[in-house]
Nucleic acid binder design. Structure first.
Lengths: 336, 336
DNA sequence: TTGAAAGCGCTAACAA
DNA sequence: TTGTTAGCGCTTTCAA
């Protein structure tokens, strides 16, 4: 069986209370006693049982992560990798809340409580896709990724989508493009809405008019990217440049452009979004907006830790800068 | 605060013991009492506190996952996605054991015990890279992925690497290749060793001689793939076909072939391993061995569950079949 | 068929 | 400065 606090107490010749005090950093312990206890802890490789500890109201050092996107999300690994260092540094383990199914029956809050989760990271929800009222009310600290919820003890973190899209448009305008389109992602996605706003701002900044028909619908996938691009190309005045909501949709768009007998970037320039691994491998290599998902993951944990530690902390909002990665899919606007 | 068993007991007008019995499926409860209790549980959305439950020796419904590869591993997401369904179905949550650093101080066993983890899946270790003696001794159920440990309550699961490499060689031999090379991954990787053995078997099956110089060193990465291929091409009698230990190393090899002024598959055929997303996107698209990581993930959880539930179960060994995905990177051997 | 009570490993209030 | 003890939420033995 695992060693417990009584084994340590016995070995050190003190009471369990003393061991507990040493372990919890109380200063009212004699220095020598403390040393003795610490040594026994090391020798026995004692680790307090976290179930027992959290049962008495102490910290469980557990952070939950909750997703709907499913694990298949292209970013998930990078976010997790970013979280890893922060988790280790602050002593948390991450529990993947798999027992969910977003139904009436299921309560994320209950799940967290039953597991003594100290805080939760939520990722992959669209606006209006789920009701987080219960979570907010419960006052369980929460950090949302890519969803602008900021209330009670819940805050959020996301890339600077607005600025990124604006810059993408400006970059294209600098290449003399005047017919610039935006290939949308999921309509209710916060990130997509921000990008759309950035696109609009970029247009304005470049002195270009907003054209309803230049904004298509889609859902971030290659398939809808392909389809949307086809529609764009069928327009009386097709765009010469497209800002895409994701790299996958950009790849779909490029396929459509190619299938229409046109070339990228000669006749149409394409900018992706995300900079997934694929972006550098496809031909032409994608010029794209790089999202710093490692930083987002790391900061998410840091924010959550702050929310956990400080009950009265104002709900944070963190916007992480992006980077335009110039590769081969954009070129000067073709002469009319 | 969260509802507890006493709230339920009060609401149902029974004792906590009765509620507990209902919750744990005891049959010694009056049917009406049971109904009443169940209804209160639903209404209050009661979920037993798992910390308390596991403290009294009951199940924690927690499975740990432990990696050294780091999260960046290309398969990790797919494995996790495979695990997801099995976890949900069997009622487990997955805890990512982040507090590790493979040092003398750290004890995976203690970590598991302190978190009341019922079983652990281990992924990303090379043979001899770590000592799992303590884990085996502890009798904590464990399932290793891609590492052939089978002892006590620990078993493993992996792709059929041997058969896969053998088939790859046979495929190439069928294309009339007689100078077939193996581009190695990490020397101490179990998967790599199996593939090497498969390569050898394939050679034998095709009546080809083993040539020391046709087996290179590497570590699965694009960089070492590039380098190894360069060495191969510098040989007096360079191979006309290469079986690679991974898709990334295959991509590196293709780069090297191209940089040497040769073409794939015209002058050199290349087979990858894994079938990562990229494999279908590079030019030429990679012919490769597809590993079914979703199945590996799912089965890993299922195996672990069986080990947890049945104390005396023999340590399992599961080999998952692979599939040769034929794309564009292999062709007939060039005429001499 | 039900309930009272002990105890899992730990922390913290209180007493010594 | 140290130890005794109650109690966290739950399960389980034993008695009713």
């Amino acid at each position: 069986m695992a060693t417990n606090i009584r084994d340590v107490a016995k070995a050190a010749g003190v009471s369990v209370a003393t061991v507990s005090k040493v372990l919890n950093g109380y200063t009212t312990v004699n220095k020598q006693t403390k040393e003795k206890v610490l040594q026994c802890v090391r020798e026995l490789q004692f680790r307090p049982n976290l179930a027992a500890r959290s049962l008495v109201g102490r910290r469980s050092m557990t952070i939950g992560i909750f997703l709907t996107t499913g694990l298949a999300h292209p970013f998930f690994t990078r976010i997790l990798a970013g979280m890893e260092q922060a988790l280790q540094k602050r002593g948390y383990d991450l529990i993947y809340l798999a027992q969910m199914s977003w139904s009436k029956e299921y309560s994320l809050v209950r799940h967290c409580q039953s597991r003594n989760v100290e805080g939760v990271v939520v990722f992959g929800f669209d606006q209006g896709g789920a009701d987080f009222g219960e979570l907010i009310e419960s006052r369980i600290p929460a950090v949302f990724i890519d969803l602008d919820i900021r209330e009670g003890r819940a805050g959020y973190i996301s890339s600077d989508n607005l600025e990124a899209a604006e810059r993408a448009v400006a970059y294209l305008a600098g290449l003399n493009h005047r017919k610039i389109s935006y290939l949308s992602g999921n309509e209710y996605s916060y990130a997509n809405r921000q990008r759309l706003a950035g696109y609009r701002a970029g247009l304005a900044g470049a002195g270009l008019a907003w054209r309803e028909e230049y904004v298509t619908k889609g859902d971030y996938t290659r398939e809808t990217g392909y389809q949307a691009m086809q529609e764009l190309l069928a327009l009386p005045e097709p765009p010469t440049a497209v800002v895409c909501c994701s790299d996958m949709s950009a790849i779909g768009a490029i396929d459509a452009i190619r299938d229409a007998g046109l070339s990228v970037p000669k006749e149409v320039s394409v900018i992706g979004f995300d900079d997934i691994e694929l972006a550098g491998y496809v031909r032409p290599a994608l010029t794209t907006v790089r999202q710093d998902m490692m930083t987002i993951g790391r900061r998410a944990i840091e924010l959550l830790d702050e929310l956990i530690v400080d009950e009265s902390l104002a709900p944070p909002e963190v916007i992480v800068p992006t980077e335009l990665v110039v590769r081969e899919s954009c070129g000067p606007a073709p002469a009319d």
